[in-house]
C-alpha cells in the first residue's frame, strides 16, 4: 500500500496547482470578456480530438521537446543545481548538430549519430562551464546559466545570418541537411519522428538512474541537503560537474532531435521562439523533478499548448492564454514550499 500512498501524496500538490490556475484563468477570461467554458472545451478538443487523432499526434510531437527540456531541467534541479540555462544549451546543441550534419560528407545513420553526439557535447560543455564557474569561482549558477543564454543565442544567430547562411533561401537559416541524416518518420506520411521515441526512452533511462542507482541516490540526497551529502562522503564538486554536464547534454539532445527530426536545418529562433526550454523548466517544477513525472507533466503542458491552437480557432481567445495558464500553474506550485527545487524541503527548513 505504501508506494501508492506516496505516489498519491506526490500528486496532490500539482493537482491543486493546476486547479488553481484553471480557476484563475477562468476569472481572467471572464474579466476580458470571454466564455471560459467554451474556451476550455475548445482547448480539450484541440489537444486530444480532431480527425484521425490528428490533434493528439500534434500534442505528442510537441511533447517531445517539452519533455526533453523538462528532463534536462529536472536532472539539475533534483540534485539542487539551479540550471536556468536550458535555452542556450538547447540552441548550441541544435547548432552543433546542424553544423556536423552539414559538414560531414556522405550522410546516413553514422552522420546522424555523430551530429547527435556533437549536440550532446555542445550543450553539455556550455552547462559545464557554468558549473566550473560556480565550483571554482563561486559564481552563482542561477544567474550565470541565465545570462549565458543570451550570448549562446546571439552567437547562433550570428552564424546563420552570416557565415553559415543559406544564401539561396534568403532567410537566416543554414542549408538543409542531407535526407539520409534526417530522423526516420514513424508511419508513412505522419510528422511523428524517431526523436519522439528517443526522448521517451531517455526519460525511462533517467528515471531508472535517479530512483534506483547509487548515482541517483547521491543526486537526490545532495538535492535535499547538500551539507548532509558532503558530510557523508559524497564528492559534491564531481556530482555538480556530472549533473550539469548531463543536464546540458540532454538539452543539446533536444536540439539535435528538433534539427534532425523537424526542421532539417538550423533556423534562427526556431528553438527559442516556441519557448521549449522555459516550458520544460516549468514541467520540472510542476512534477517536483521526478523523471516519470516529467513525462506526465510534459504531455500535459504540450496538450495545453496544442489545445491553445484549437481554442484560438474555435473561439476568440488568443492561444497565448496557454502561456498565462502555465505560468499561473507554476505560481501555485511555488506556494507549496515542499514542491520547490529538488522535490523536497530545502536545507534547514525542516
Amino acid at each position: 500500500m505504501r508506494p501508492w500512498r506516496t505516489a498519491l501524496a506526490g500528486l496532490e500538490g500539482p493537482l491543486v496547482a493546476v486547479g488553481g490556475a484553471v480557476a484563475a484563468g477562468a476569472l481572467f477570461m471572464v474579466a476580458t470578456g470571454h466564455d471560459p467554458l467554451a474556451a476550455y472545451g475548445a482547448m480539450i478538443t484541440g489537444a486530444l480530438g480532431g480527425r484521425g487523432l490528428g490533434n493528439l499526434l500534434a500534442t505528442l510531437l510537441r511533447a517531445a521537446p517539452i519533455v526533453g527540456m523538462g528532463l534536462a531541467a529536472a536532472v539539475a534541479f533534483r540534485a539542487g543545481f539551479f540550471n536556468l540555462g536550458g535555452e542556450g544549451q538547447l540552441v548550441l546543441g541544435g547548432l552543433a548538430g546542424a553544423v556536423v550534419a552539414l559538414a560531414l560528407p556522405g550522410g546516413g545513420l553514422l552522420t546522424a549519430l555523430l551530429a547527435t553526439l556533437a549536440a550532446l557535447l555542445a550543450g553539455g560543455l556550455w552547462a559545464l562551464a557554468a558549473a566550473f564557474f560556480e565550483i571554482r569561482f563561486r559564481v552563482p549558477l542561477l544567474v550565470s546559466t541565465l545570462l549565458m543564454n543570451y550570448p549562446a543565442r546571439l552567437f547562433a544567430s550570428y552564424l546563420v545570418n552570416h557565415p553559415l547562411r543559406d544564401v539561396g533561401s534568403g532567410l537566416p537559416q543554414t542549408e538543409r541537411i542531407a535526407g539520409g541524416v534526417e530522423l526516420a518518420r514513424l508511419g508513412a506520411g505522419g510528422r511523428l519522428h524517431l526523436g519522439v521515441l528517443v526522448v521517451a526512452a531517455t526519460v525511462l533511462a533517467a528515471a531508472f538512474v535517479v530512483r534506483r542507482t547509487r548515482v541517483g541516490y547521491r543526486m537526490r540526497m545532495a538535492g535535499l541537503n547538500a551539507r548532509f551529502a558532503r558530510a557523508g562522503g559524497v564528492d559534491l564538486d564531481r556530482l555538480g560537474y556530472g549533473v550539469m554536464f548531463s543536464s546540458g547534454a540532454l538539452a543539446g539532445l533536444v536540439g539535435a532531435v528538433q534539427v534532425l527530426g523537424v526542421h532539417h536545418r538550423f533556423i534562427d529562433g526556431s528553438l527559442t521562439d516556441p519557448l521549449w526550454a522555459w516550458t520544460g523548466l516549468m514541467v520540472a517544477l510542476l512534477c517536483g523533478s521526478r523523471p516519470l513525472g516529467v513525462l506526465v507533466a510534459g504531455l500535459f503542458f504540450a496538450a495545453v499548448q496544442t489545445g491553445g491552437f484549437g481554442m484560438e480557432r474555435a473561439t476568440e481567445v488568443p492561444r497565448e492564454l496557454s502561456r498565462v495558464l502555465q505560468a499561473l500553474i507554476i505560481l501555485f506550485v511555488a506556494a507549496q514550499a515542499r514542491f520547490g527545487f529538488g522535490g523536497g524541503e530545502r536545507e534547514g527548513t525542516g
Binding site: N225, A229, G232, R338, G344
Partner: peptide, 24 residues
C-alpha cells in the same frame, strides 16, 4: 555532527535513505 538536521540528516528523506548515506 552538532547540527543534527542541517548536517547529520536529510530530514525530507526516508529513515532508510538517511541510514544509507556513506554506505551506498
Amino acid at each position: 555532527p552538532e547540527d543534527r538536521d542541517g548536517t547529520g540528516l536529510a530530514v525530507a528523506a526516508s529513515v532508510a535513505e538517511n541510514l544509507l548515506m556513506g554506505f551506498e
